[in-house]
Design a binder for these strands. Structure first.
Lengths: 237, 237
DNA sequence: TGTACATCAGTGAACGCGCGTTCACTGATGTAC
DNA sequence: TGTACATCAGTGAACGCGCGTTCACTGATGTAC
């Protein structure tokens, strides 16, 4: 590979490569590990070449954060899709809500670096999940929490919060969640799962052994279900 | 101040000063802002002087983390102490539990840097809350989550988790929390409050306006109370 | 009570490191006529 | 279809920065006799 190789890469390959490299760095060491020079090294390009594609390091980090969040959303969607049962079926509704929580916790445990990165908003450059989309269109995370189900013409809301809302709507449709309590309930539920993920991932509970960890997961998902429906969850197995 | 000033400081003053300086840095910018050289500058001492008191930067950070956690514990204890009512009184029990959550959320909101630092365990040097104690003795945070109320002869457990356990015990004593559900319930409750603190502090909900933030707080504390006692919390005001 | 000496806690100078970022450049690609 | 030229996307070299950390030192403090 001499100077003939200068422009062999297809359009956008370097940019995509930098984001992919940043994602690998984030996977290993979290957002702080997303080092611009290291990413260019991995792509096989000179450091300042990155500035053809990003204004600065923070903009690269924003892209990596968005990609991490997209990865989480994808895993959650896959977990939900794996649960059989028609909409309106109470068991299916409970199963899908549980799948959402389980996928969230599994991602945090299996990919702690990416999980931390997904929620590490860069200082300067806001990012939307849309930026990370490889598929068609996505909606913004609605950070104001104003509410609604995201049916604003941009397609289903694939963000974690959007998927949670969908599951809670289904729970209400199935008659398991009182309608009067539906409004805004996604935030306490989200907080509970997120809190456990953080405490057990990088927080004071990070050293609990795996069996106890699983127990905490079930205890917490059970607490949520009880808080929503007033019923204890069925014991698995 | 010439060379005569060389050893004017009382014993331990530099070490304490470094931790205090680190705490101020953490208050402003979180754990990453705890820069050894900057702390020595604030104390008015040459950079390598820090190595008389700490093995390396990480050990300084550990002390600052412990001090941050202690600050949180102190605020929680103060909030609980402000609630009147004898032990066993149901209203008082609910009030103290609520005070714990409120103090936790208030600390996260008012001191985001310290809150992040309290939960940013340094890589190498584990810390215990005992390290940060200015008063007599304290118990360790029991990171294994094995359980128990911490009555192991080391005095009352002032850690956040310990205080939460005390409040939940009182709730059970008052008959508001079913004894069969008491065991381990502190973890889902902790996770819920912690999750909201993180999401609203540095997470995707960090830009919600203050009134909505308060609404989220009440919604979440209400979710917890409902999950524990099966009763909706009384509306304030 | 006074002296000798070990220890403690600071100074001064320097190090290597890797980072983000800027500058002037050059060759390859795509477009207009 | 062929040529002229603007733009794009890379190179090469260098910068200043502040960091954590190490070394040899020195003066002040506390202790033993």
């Amino acid at each position: 590979m001499r100077q003939t190789e200068r422009r062999r890469r297809p359009r956008g390959a370097v940019r995509d490569g930098l984001v992919a490299a940043g994602l690998e760095l984030a996977r290993t060491g979290g957002p702080d590990a997303v080092v611009l020079r290291e990413a260019t090294r991995m792509v096989g390009v000179v450091p300042n070449a990155a500035y053809r594609h990003f204004a600065d390091r923070d903009e690269l980090l924003a892209a990596v954060c968005a990609a991490s969040m997209d990865e989480l959303a994808t895993r959650m969607a896959a977990g939900v899709a794996r649960v059989p049962g028609r909409p309106g079926d109470p068991d299916a509704a409970l199963g899908r809500l549980s799948a959402i929580g389980t996928a969230y916790l599994a991602f945090a445990r299996e990919e702690p670096g990416l999980f931390a990165t997904a929620f590490a908003l860069p200082q300067q450059h806001a990012y939307s999940v849309r930026d990370a989309a490889t598929g068609p269109d996505r909606a913004d995370p609605d950070p104001t929490g104003a509410g609604g189900t995201g049916a604003d013409g941009t397609g289903p809301d694939r963000t974690p919060l959007g998927q949670l809302r969908t599951a809670l709507d289904e729970l209400a449709d199935a008659g398991l969640l009182d309608r009067s309590r539906r409004d805004g309930i996604e935030y306490p539920v989200w907080a509970t799962v997120h809190g456990l993920a953080v405490l057990a991932g990088s927080g004071p509970l990070r050293d609990v052994p795996e069996t106890a960890r699983h127990h905490l997961d079930e205890l917490t998902l059970g607490f949520i279900q009880n808080g929503l429906t007033g019923t204890e969850p069925a014991l698995p197995g």
